[in-house]
Amino acid sequence: MSSASGEPKVQGRDIPNRRVVLNDISQLPSEYSTTPGGTFFSTTPGGTRIVYERNFLLQCRNSPLAKSPPANMLEIPGITSPAKPGVKENGDHSLKSVKEEKAKVSAEDAQFEMDI
């Protein structure tokens, strides 16, 4: 279209690639979404789907950002906070931040309205 009207064509860019030689079938990754030699880009051709392998996700478990519970997590005894004081690990920690956040939010129940 643009060339017909005399405007310069948009310059395309090559998709970056890398060649990995496999010597044996056992070197093929077991997961569909993994390329030989490790996942190259975390996006797929034709889109920008964000793909993570299990091992990578597990590594992120140790991130400092993951050490404390979300500020506004619902407090459910035995599930997100201890059933009894001192029963579950991290209990005091999560209890405190949930309580702090709780003061800020009003207890409206619009979410649970439905027609039956």
């Binding site: 991130s63 404390s68 519970p69 506004n72 997590m73 619902l74 997100t80 991290n90």
Partner: peptide, 20 residues
Amino acid sequence: KFVASFASVEQFWSAYSHMT
């Protein structure tokens, strides 16, 4: 019961690690 929402890997672990 709605417990929490998350948008990143780290936010997921933050919630998951603090649930039974």
